[in-house]
Design a protein around this nucleic acid. Structure first.
Lengths: 377, 377
DNA sequence: TCTTCCTGTGAATCGGATG
DNA sequence: CCATCCGATTCACAGGAAG
C-alpha cells in the first residue's frame, strides 16, 4: 500500500497513483469533481444527519448529554438538506463505476430523504440494512422507544447494473452457513477503538465502529478495489479499507479530522491473505422478553402463573405484565413483591400449569430462544 | 362492542356510533373525507409498497414465487406514487386528533418516499421501528442480503404535539424491565392465523401478523381509543383492536377483502379488563404536595431531612418548605441547591430518619396517596 | 490478585400543569 | 401567549477506585 498523503490541490484529473489512499481536503462536491469519472468501486457515505435538536437534554442524574451540535450538522430546512443531498449524490454517482455500489448510513432524521433522493437520481436500491446497536443510548425521558438502530441503504448505480460485487458465499460462510440477513448486530464505537484527543475528549462525535465497515467492505468489494468516503471524518472507512487490502479515497473539510485520520490509518497494518479469508462473526445470546412468549403463542393472556409451591399466583395480561392481588408489573417485579423481597428472577420463580404439573416459564424462554437462533436472531 | 357493519354510503359526518367498528368501502381518500376531522386516536397504515418487479422469480427447485403483482400495487412512476402517498397522508392527517399518532409500514421500495412525504406534510417522526422477521423469505438468487425486515414509521401529527399516548411503563415491564427498543422480532403471518379461501389460497398477499399490531396498539393507544386503518385489507388491525378493547375504522376498496375481514373480526372475542389494564406511570398518579404530609401528621415541622448518604441535611418548616445552611424553598429547590444542580426530585432525594435508618420521603407520599384513595379525594 | 462499587458516556429531533 | 414550578426519567460497557 502506498504511503499516506494529503492532497490540498488536485486541479486536474490525476493518474490513479496520485489520489489513491489519500484524503482530499475541501468541500465534498468540489473535491469529487476533481476525481475522474467512473473511477471508484464502492462508496461509503456517512453524511450529516440533520438532527433538529431544541434545547439541552439531561440524564436522570442531571448530567448533560453531549449532543451532536456541530455546525456541519445544521441545515436551514428540509429543502436545504435535500439540495445538499442531491448535490453530493450526483457528484458521487459521476465517479462511481457503472457496476459500482454505494452505501449511505443515516437515522430516521435524514435517511428517508436520502433514500428518496437516491431513487430520484436513478440509484437502484439493493437492500436496506439495519445496524442494531448492542449498547445504544437510552431514551432518558421515557417518551419514545429506545432508538436502538441506524439504517444503511445499499444501492447500485442504476437498475440495469447487474454485475455489481456481492460476496454472497463469504457472507453466508461468516453467518454459520445461512444467508446473511439485512439486520446486523454490532456495538457502538467505544473503548480503545474510539479516537480521543489529548484531553480525553472524543475526536469525532459520530465515529463508526470498524466492525460495521468491515462487513460492508467484505460483502461488497474485492481486494484491490477503490473505496470512496465523501464524509471521511475520523477515517474509519480508510482504516478498514487499508486493513482489508482495499484502496481508499477520502474527502474531508476539517483539518482536525484529517490529522487524526492520517495518524490512525498510518498505524493500520494490512491483513495477509490468509487472515482475510477466514474472518467470521460471532453472535450474542439473544434476549427474550416475556411478552414475546405471548406473541409466539407459547403463553396466553389470562393464564395463571404460580410459584413452585403454589403459595402465590398471578395472571398474565395482554401487554406482557403480571397482576396479582396487590401489585402489577413485570414477572420480576411481581415475583419480588409477593415474596416481600427486593428482587426476584421471574423466569425461574414463576411456573405454568401443564398436565396438572408446574413447569418454570424459563422452559418456554428456552424454546423461544431456540426459535430465535434458528432464524438468525 | 357494537356489531360489525359495512357502510357503503356515508355522505355526511356521522355520529360516532355510525362509523365506529365498521369498514368504509371505497377509495381511501374519498372515504376518509367522509369522516369527521380530528376523530381518530391512532392510524395504522399498510399502503401499497410499489414493488417494481420485472418478470417472474423462481426458487432453486424451479417453483415460481407467488409475487405481489396485484393491480393495486402498480404505479406509473415514483412521481405517481408520491402523489398517491401525499393524498392519502393529507386525508389521514385531517381525521387524526391533534395528539394522535400514525404508524406506516413499508419496505425499502416505498418507505423512503413515504417517510420524506410525511416530514414534508408536517408529521413529526417519533421513532422508526424495525420489524425483524424470524422467518423471512430467502434470497433465491444469492445476489443480495436476505431481506429480513420491514420498517415502520411512528409519528405525531406535528412537532409541537407532546401529549401523544405512549405506554412507556407497559412496554418496559413487558420487556424484562428495560426500555423497549426500536427493533422488534416477530414471525411473519403463517399457519392458522393466515386467512385462506376455499381453495386454500391466501386471501391477501401481505397479511400482517397480529402480534405486530398488538404491540403497536398496546404501546400507543388506550382502551376505548379509535384506530383507523386506511388500507384495511384482511382486517388485522380491526381484529387486534377489537381483541384489545379499542374501536376500529377501516377503509377498503375490494369486496373480497371486506368479506374476509368482517368474518374474521366477528369471530374475535375481546379480552377482559383484567388482562387489558396497562401499567401506569407515576406521571398519571395524583399529585401530593409536600405540605400535605404536615397536614396529615406524617411529617412534623422541625424534622431534619438528609440525603441518602447524610452528606446534606435540611429542616422542615411549618409551611412545607425546607431550609438548609444556605437556601430555603421547596424540597426540589433546596435539593438542587445543596448539590449545585439545576434540578432535583426532592421526593427521592430527601430522606427521613426512622429507627436510626433513612427512608425516602417518597414512602410517605405513597402512604398519603393511599389515604387519598380511601377517602375518594 | 480478584471482586465489587462507582462514575462516565454514546448521532437525542426526549414534559406537563398551573396561573 | 408566556413564565413558573413540579418532579419524572437510563442501558450497556469501559475504566478506575475501593475493598
Amino acid at each position: 500500500m502506498s504511503a499516506l498523503r494529503l492532497l490540498d490541490d488536485l486541479s486536474h484529473a490525476a493518474p490513479a497513483a496520485q489520489w489513491l489512499d489519500t484524503i482530499l481536503k475541501g468541500d465534498c462536491v468540489a473535491a469529487l469533481e476533481r476525481l475522474p469519472e467512473k473511477s471508484v468501486d464502492v462508496i461509503f457515505a456517512d453524511p450529516p444527519y440533520n438532527l433538529q435538536l431544541d434545547g439541552d437534554l439531561h440524564r436522570p442524574d442531571q448530567s448533560k448529554v453531549d449532543a451532536v451540535d456541530d455546525a456541519w450538522d445544521q441545515f436551514e430546512s428540509f429543502a436545504a438538506y435535500d439540495a445538499f443531498t442531491r448535490a453530493w449524490l450526483l457528484a458521487a454517482r459521476r465517479v462511481l463505476k457503472p457496476n459500482g455500489t454505494i452505501w449511505v448510513i443515516g437515522s430516521y432524521h435524514n435517511i428517508f430523504r436520502v433514500g428518496a433522493t437516491m431513487q430520484d437520481l436513478g440509484f437502484w436500491i439493493l437492500n436496506d440494512v439495519v445496524w442494531r446497536k448492542t449498547n445504544p443510548m437510552p431514551n432518558f425521558r421515557g417518551r419514545r422507544f429506545q432508538n436502538a438502530h441506524e439504517t444503511m441503504i445499499w444501492a447500485s448505480r442504476d437498475a440495469k447494473a447487474k454485475s455489481y460485487t456481492f460476496n454472497y458465499e463469504a457472507m453466508k460462510a461468516a453467518n454459520d452457513d445461512v444467508q446473511m440477513r439485512s439486520d446486523w448486530l454490532f456495538p457502538i464505537c467505544t473503548g480503545a477503538e474510539r479516537l480521543k484527543d489529548e484531553n480525553g475528549a472524543k475526536v469525532h462525535p459520530t465515529q463508526k465502529p470498524e466492525a460495521l465497515l468491515a462487513r460492508v467492505l467484505l460483502s461488497s468489494s474485492k481486494p484491490g478495489d477503490v473505496v470512496l468516503d465523501p464524509f471521511f471524518g475520523s477515517g474509519t472507512t480508510g482504516a478498514v479499507a487499508k486493513r482489508l487490502g482495499r484502496h481508499f479515497v477520502g474527502v474531508e473539510r476539517e483539518q482536525a479530522y484529517i490529522d487524526a485520520a492520517l495518524d490512525r490509518i498510518s498505524a493500520v497494518r494490512p491483513l495477509g491473505e490468509a487472515e482475510l479469508s477466514v474472518m467470521t462473526s460471532k453472535r450474542a445470546e439473544p434476549r427474550v422478553a416475556f411478552v414475546s412468549l405471548l406473541d409466539s403463542g407459547l403463553m396466553k393472556p389470562g393464564a395463571t402463573l404460580y410459584d413452585a409451591k403454589r403459595r402465590w399466583s398471578a395472571r398474565v395480561r395482554a401487554d406482557g405484565t403480571l397482576t396479582s392481588d396487590a401489585v402489577s408489573g413485570s414477572i420480576h417485579k411481581v415475583g419480588a413483591a409477593v415474596q416481600g423481597l427486593d428482587a426476584c428472577n421471574g423466569w425461574t420463580f414463576w411456573h405454568y400449569e401443564r398436565n396438572g404439573g408446574l413447569n418454570p416459564i424459563d422452559d418456554l424462554r428456552r424454546i423461544a430462544r431456540l426459535g430465535m437462533e434458528r432464524s438468525g436472531a
